[in-house]
Design a protein around this nucleic acid. Sequence first.
DNA 1: GTCTATATGGCGATAGAC
DNA 2: GTCTATCGCCATATAGAC
Lengths: 194, 194
Amino acid sequence: MAGAAVSEKRQSSPGRARVEEVALELFAQEGIANTTLQRIADAMGVTKAAVYWHYRSKEEIVLGVLKPALAELRRIVEAAEQERGKRSRVESALAGTVDLVVTHRRLAGVLLGDSALRETLEQHPEISELLVRLVELLQGAEGDPGSQVAATLYMSGLVGPATDPRVAGLDDDVLREYLLDAGRRLLLARRPRR
Amino acid sequence: MAGAAVSEKRQSSPGRARVEEVALELFAQEGIANTTLQRIADAMGVTKAAVYWHYRSKEEIVLGVLKPALAELRRIVEAAEQERGKRSRVESALAGTVDLVVTHRRLAGVLLGDSALRETLEQHPEISELLVRLVELLQGAEGDPGSQVAATLYMSGLVGPATDPRVAGLDDDVLREYLLDAGRRLLLARRPRR
DNA sequence: GTCTATATGGCGATAGAC
DNA sequence: GTCTATCGCCATATAGAC
């Protein structure tokens, strides 16, 4: 605790980085709920108490793991909202989310796949507000039921390509193109009026 | 235990039906992991031990709740496999799964949304084999990566429309049509070759 | 079939020595 | 920063009376 305590830099220490690295791996493999502090500690070769020196709760570990992805998602949403046309906004949000999922598959799988995590995220207004903005972007701001159904199908569906072992072998660039194709058909194709 | 023990009918007693009814409600509202036996018992106005008289484990309750949906899914898969053309098989599997999700939204939400449940289902070969056959049907038997991505996006995406509060107000018939539209665009639209 | 009471175990989290 | 040890809690599951 030499000069580190000065002004409390919050977040990011080398110790935390190591914890979050192995935690992500375990979260992706076995889910958050099944990943006990004991297993994280075992994987690091230390004890629970050593892990807990860096954090005050398990939730803090989870949020630490998710933080980079959420920061990136925020940039994606804000960039998409800068686009002028409706269609451009959808395209931008689509390209951004696909890229995020493809390049961070394990993290995306954790973020999207864990139902218990949703409750946690809803406790954090700045995060759930971000997700609302994302869904609105994907809907194309139409707000008609057809667009809502398509948008929620796409959003919740991303977990499949992120975790399905059958697509795990695809290169990033290949998966990205297939996902963009699928997303465009779902979100941008002309739909019958009702 | 008058004449009920004769030949062990397995499954389905009036007592089990009542348990599974309230269990489904709680599973849908708060997830399987958060639904303790105590809460099921409270909702029924009895004690944990009374609930446990009908079952040997919590997993048996979960499987009991899921059983009707899985039986229906089996009929859907087998019917789709009887269709002759590739496209007909996709159409049939799509219509069947959409109908299942729409008419049993809460049950579908539980079945599709719980990540811990997947591990349980994978322990039962006859169930996971059924899901494999379903994915193959939705892929159109092509097996190319684009079809795999689309199929897994659709499958994992169904949980959204099944649970999203923004579409909860839609009538069954309306939601069914929107989901069929989305599914057709995703699974049946011509895709660029690669 | 339902009850009270308890066994059994794992979890997150803390205390305090080193 | 890491350790040993332990607390407090709540979960599933069981025993046995009624």
